[in-house]
Nucleic acid binder design. Structure first.
Lengths: 348, 348
DNA sequence: TGACAGAATTGGAACGTTCCAAATATTTAA
DNA sequence: TTAAATATTTGGAACGTTCCAATTCTGTCA
């Protein structure tokens, strides 16, 4: 039933020109006569021609495939979904197409996915690496001249570009806010110490404490899994300290939610009895009760910046590693105790 | 700096065999001698060979490209992100790769994206169509023998396969639950009447009322935008009725949240003063206050089923349109008034 | 030893495009 | 009217693979 593929040669024959001319039309070359061009276009429409990018890529360099690969570690997390949307926006308007895959934090899967993308001739790659990704994993790509941009989590030691949020400044502003509310003993809860993001956020916490003229106490830093369960665990340890903290900045929002759970389990109300600040500003943050005060990082913005950087490198042909740090801002809601009343934020 | 591409011929030369043999190895053919195979593999590793799928696809049918296109109307909505993850799971384990794009409900964008995927030679397409998608839009694809599976929203009139949730049964169970709690006047709130999903859910509502021996009243069906704002609007109309309802099933969770907002704005507490049931079970549903009683539809499951169906059709070579209806289940939380206490659901 | 079967290998000819160098048509200038 | 310049068009030769038919290599059996 389905006829053989319509090729450039069929078009040429039907339009009474050579395949070269058709190719020229396809590429929007200014060399071809206006009359010929419209005739060829008409024939294409008529015969239902579809361009075969695979064949074209065979002839051209891989930089011309116009595919960018996007690899995220957890698409289920709306943070990364937003990021992908941000990438898609700029990538698409530049006439590229996105090739999105999810690794679910598995580095094996990540390897597979990246390999597969390479086979498909991607022009560049944007990746939010799975945990414990080896910095050397992307070596072959860059050696082959394929630009790589790492987002969200940076890969110390890898010679690739990266776009990360200003973890340091974000934490500093969170600590500053809490100290301005009168808190003196502020804990840092959650996160795995072996990641670069953790280091940055912790550094921000220390700087913030120092800037506020508060002492840094080792025992107020309690790491845990960067999850809701981890938050419960961390606040459990914090609350039994001899000299209890009265507030906490958390590694991320998931931890902050867990901290709230843990507080309530001990009949303490987050916001009024203990101040909690998160990091990321996931969508649930504003709908939660109490609404979470948190550092907003704008994942879409990171996606857009990452994509712009990548496109720049693709077009330049050469990939000078570059680091972009995106701004963050503290969003004050209820969990820090600054605002008491429940406000319904409409329009979701 | 970057060396020329390593091709199958380079491998052949280095291994002292012909390119045909290398090709055979690539395809895992049993024709080739074990010794030769391992030698070739060794050389490939050594020279850093990467397979050029584009070239291969040129020779083979498009069904062998092993790319499946996935198009969703709103990746920002975690419902669709989950769906994409479900697709990815089965698609990936079948050795295919996913090509995911987002249309943001724009049918122009959808057209572009689908066209681009076609140019890249996808083996099949899974699409959650943008609103107002014309059923004929996918005609050319199926005419070209490319299987298409529509998910979530069905496209009446299109001769393609689809996977949708059991909207009818879901609504019926919601109504049944409310009637068992003693409610007699139950409203149906929200949603645009011109969509197939609306029709199904409304039909389920009517059947449910009938099954519970309750009368169907035209004025209790109040449509609105399927959003939070729409929910506020709908409950506003419902509450001023002469014979007020005491409960409502909502078109989806967003509407249900809006209904809760609207109730509270009138000093009515959702759950105790008025029962609210949603549809979809988005992640926010369980964290909301009160936690939303809703019909859970398992988007990952839909994604998986859709992918399985698509792969089946790709392998079969022939695409007999087929419709799969996935099961749903009512998740009873607090907004229906059945449970009073706040339970912390851990583990997010 | 020769014939034969089976196993393993191999040269080309595709696939649908782009690119180059060259050919042809059209204008312009003298 | 002709040469030169410009605008347009055009055959092939790639690109990296797969596939087919044909070939060469092993044994094995009479």
């Amino acid at each position: 039933m389905t006829k053989a593929r319509v090729t450039v040669i069929d078009i040429a024959k039907a339009a009474g020109v050579s395949k070269s001319t058709v190719s020229l039309v396809l590429q929007g070359s200014s060399l071809v006569n206006e009359g010929t061009r419209s005739k060829v276009n008409a024939v294409m429409r008529e015969l239902g021609y579809v361009y075969n990018r695979g064949a074209a890529n065979l002839r051209q360099a891989s930089a011309k495939s116009r595919i960018v690969g996007v690899v995220v570690n957890d698409l289920t997390n709306s943070f990364f979904a937003e990021l992908a949307v941000g990438v898609d926006m700029v990538v698409q308007s530049a006439g590229f197409v996105q090739f999105l895959s999810n690794t679910s934090e598995s580095i094996d899967r990540q390897r597979e996915v990246v390999a597969s993308m390479r086979e498909h001739g991607i022009s560049g790659l944007i990746v939010s690496p799975a945990r414990a990704t080896d910095a050397a994993d992307f070596k072959p790509l860059v050696a082959a001249g394929i630009p790589v941009v790492v987002v969200v989590r940076n890969l110390p030691g890898a010679k690739v570009s990266s776009v990360v949020s200003d973890n340091r400044a974000g934490m500093m502003s969170a600590v500053k806010h809490l100290s301005e509310l009168g808190h003196k003993r502020i804990a840092f809860l959650g996160g795995f110490p072996d990641t670069a993001v953790f280091d940055d956020r912790l550094a921000g916490y220390r700087s913030g404490m120092e800037a506020a003229g508060l002492d840094y106490h080792q025992e107020l830093v309690i790491s845990s899994a960067p999850s809701r369960a981890g938050g419960v665990e961390a606040i459990g340890k914090a609350i039994v300290l001899a000299d209890k903290p009265s507030a906490a900045v958390c590694f991320n929002d998931a931890v902050a939610f867990g901290v709230c759970d843990g507080l309530r389990a001990r009949r303490l109300e987050p916001g009024s009895d203990f101040a909690v600040v998160g990091f990321d500003d996931v969508i649930e943050a504003q709908a939660a009760v109490p609404a979470l005060t948190t550092v907003s990082v704008d994942p879409q913005g990171i996606g857009r910046r990452g994509a712009q950087l990548l496109l720049k490198q693709i077009n330049a042909g050469k990939a000078e590693p570059e680091t972009v740090i995106t701004a963050v801002r503290l969003v004050v809601r209820e969990s820090c105790g600054a605002r008491k009343s429940v406000k319904i934020e409409t329009g979701l």
